[in-house]
């Protein structure tokens, strides 16, 4: 496994920043990684923190597997969140059993819709999706802020937050006196289904073929553009569900900072997980751990919370480097 090695190397690199921030690196890394797992309360917080990035990690991994580089999970998440907040305010009369599927489906459709334009541009005109999906992220954030400062501003408090969603539209808690909610189960179920589709179905085999050699796939008669389009929309839909999960599971309303960069962290999760679904589950939990640990380490050791982000970014770079070295070594061994 690459991840444990990458973690050790990452700590060696980032120790410099921890020391510069005036803390003992071993203590800091203990708090980053291990401490969150030692008490039930923080352990549950790790799961809460992992929930959105499990969604976005799966979303990004599916797209990347098809060779579609969706960098827009952040914007698709926000589109899903807008849809969830909007629907949540109007489904109050319905029972949860009806309201929740509507919320999830609506968020998924909004995420897919946000992913549609770049996907069409790529398939029809060959316009690079890395640029277009990325550029739509700030557009989605501006849309959220426009809503929160305009029509959806909370009428009672006047804060730039939407009015709370109906109680029947909230994702139920899983563990009493914790924030762990049904979104976690939904994320894990999606990862399981995605795993099954990618590894066990003909659609998954086509996706893998298109992703790893589009020319050979086209030569064999596979529908390359159709596969890309479907992968892009499914990816957007799953990212949209992350938005539903945060609105209906944690915030109970639309807020400006609800994503906390989960869309971008999803790229880290997908890459760390080697674009496989078991890998995404493991990497999602690891980064959830790190997110919680970075927060408590910052408080306990009085170091900037950005150190946690430095660790996370370094972990990504080290993993990519490790994967590149491995694949290069493999190709020199296999190469003639």
């Amino acid at each position: 496994m690459v991840i444990p090695v990458a973690v050790v190397i990452t700590f060696a690199f980032t120790a410099v920043f921890v020391v510069a921030a005036g803390a003992d690196p071993f203590d800091a890394f203990y708090r980053f990684l291990v401490a969150p797992l030692t008490s039930p309360v923080t352990l549950l917080e790790v799961l809460v923190s992992a929930t959105p990035i499990l969604f976005t990690g799966a979303a990004v991994a599916i797209a990347f597997r098809a060779g579609y580089y969706n960098i827009g999970a952040e914007g698709q998440l926000l589109a899903g969140a807008i849809a969830a907040a909007g629907l949540g305010m109007v489904v109050g009369a319905l029972p949860s059993l009806v309201a929740l599927p509507i919320m999830v489906a609506g968020g998924a459709m909004a995420g897919a819709a946000w992913a549609l334009l770049p996907a069409l541009l790529r398939v029809r005109s060959g316009i690079d999706e890395v640029v277009t999906t990325l550029l739509l992220n700030p557009v989605a954030l501006l849309l959220v802020n426009a809503l929160l400062n305009g029509p959806w501003r909370d009428p009672e408090t006047g804060f730039p937050e939407s009015a709370p969603i109906a109680a029947s539209a909230e994702l139920p808690q899983l563990v009493a006196r914790s924030r762990v909610h049904l979104g976690l189960v939904l994320a894990l179920a999606i990862i399981a289904v995605a795993w099954f589709i990618i590894t066990r179905t003909s659609a998954g085999l086509k996706l893998r073929a298109v992703g790893s050699s589009p020319r050979a796939a086209a030569f064999a008669g596979l529908d390359v553009n159709g596969t890309l389009l479907r992968a892009a929309l499914v990816s957007g839909a799953i990212a949209g569900m992350a938005g539903v999960s945060e609105v209906a599971g944690i915030q109970d309303r639309l807020t400006g900072g609800l994503s906390a960069g989960a869309g971008y962290t999803g790229i880290v999760v997908a890459t760390l997980g080697g674009l496989t679904m078991p890998g995404v589950a493991a990497a999602g939990l690891l980064l959830g751990d790190l997110r919680v640990g970075a927060g408590s380490a910052a408080r306990a050791l009085d170091i900037p919370s950005q150190v946690g982000e430095i660790v996370q970014a370094t972990l990504l770079l080290v993993t990519i480097a490790a994967l590149a070295i491995i694949s290069r070594r493999r190709s020199t061994q296999a190469g003639r």
Binding site: R200, T201, S202, L205, R208, S212, S213, A216, A217, L222
Partner: peptide
């Protein structure tokens, strides 16, 4: 003409993946 990352077995059915299905599964 071949997908290098996929196995020999998968490449042999690449032109007719849908002939090798049992329901939705491969």
């Amino acid at each position: 003409s071949v997908v290098g990352d996929l196995s020999v077995a998968y490449n042999l059915v690449l032109e007719r993946i849908d002939d090798f299905r049992k329901g939705g599964r491969l």
